[in-house]
């Protein structure tokens, strides 16, 4: 079976360079990428989405290379992947409902009524229906997160990327959101890619764990391997120790 997304010997010289990174995420699998600052984590999502186009090697999505797509194919590719990043980037002059509906306004054949219905359903599941007319400036932190998640997932993408998105929220406020995320990660046909400095937070959600250091993958394994492996990089990371193969300033 074709992997949903695959990196083949990818090298790029972005802000956080990657050096010969290869991995594959199968359809239905949830992958977690973690590491320290500057390890190359920042470059993963832009390469998957197609925002970063200057690289060597190959990025394949549903078996097809993402390089060399024409203008419209690139837009469709971006529209087809959900991306929730830590800055959220809600459009400040749009309401919660308009922000969530944004993706459906493009590249979809839904009628305005259908868009309203899908958006309404999403807002109810996220417990923000009563805030549908509010602008981002009027929302609490967790409401902003839920709206941004709603926008990323409203067109039910088969790949959802969550990058440093759950920082600075109380666990209690995130409870219903985490339940929803759990349901999504359990879906046999949908994948979530987590990119984080804090892998423990998602340990129950992910099936595959990849640790990066200096643009290379230094550990790959399953959940049990992530919890038990004696890989020196992983041990140093788990123990939050300055001692180990990683050079921590």
């Amino acid at each position: 079976m074709l992997p949903l997304i695959e990196f083949i010997d990818v090298t790029c010289a972005a802000d956080e360079p990657l050096n010969g990174v290869s991995f594959r995420v199968a359809r239905g699998e949830n992958a977690l990428f973690f590491g320290i600052e500057g390890s190359g984590l920042k470059s993963i999502a832009p390469l998957m989405i197609g925002l970063e186009e200057s690289y060597e090697g190959e990025v394949r999505y549903r078996g097809a290379p993402t390089r060399g797509l024409d203008y419209l194919a690139k837009l469709r590719h971006k529209n087809g992947i959900g991306y929730l990043h830590g800055d959220y980037g809600l459009i400040s002059n749009m309401s919660v409902e308009e922000n969530i509906a944004l993706r459906l306004e493009y590249f979809s054949d839904y009628s305005p009524e259908e868009i309203r219905e899908i958006t309404g359903r999403m807002m109810r599941e996220l417990h923000i229906y009563d805030r549908r007319a509010a602008r981002p400036v009027e929302l609490t932190g967790s409401q902003i997160l839920r709206t941004a998640y709603g926008r990323a997932a409203v067109n039910d993408p088969d790949l959802l990327i969550i990058e440093h998105a759950l920082v600075g929220h109380s666990a209690l406020d995130l409870r219903s959101f985490m339940d929803m995320l759990r349901a999504r990660t359990a879906h046999p046909d949908r994948s979530v890619v987590f990119i984080t400095y804090d892998p423990q937070k998602f340990v129950d959600f992910a099936d595959a764990f990849h640790m990066l250091y200096k643009g290379r993958i230094v550990f790959s394994g399953s959940r049990s391997e992530f919890l038990e492996s004696d890989n020196p990089y992983l041990v140093q990371f788990r123990n939050v120790s300055p001692e180990g193969p990683m050079d921590i300033p």
Binding site: I49, L51, L75, R76, H77, K78, N79, G80, I81, Y83, H85, D87, Y88, G89, L90, I91, S92, L102, R103, Y106, F107, R151
Partner: peptide
């Protein structure tokens, strides 16, 4: 400029909106 700084423009781009 403010939208760019707060990554709203990026959000449009990653939603496939030019």
């Amino acid at each position: 400029a403010t939208q760019k700084w707060s990554r709203e423009i990026l959000s449009l781009e990653i939603a496939g909106i030019d």
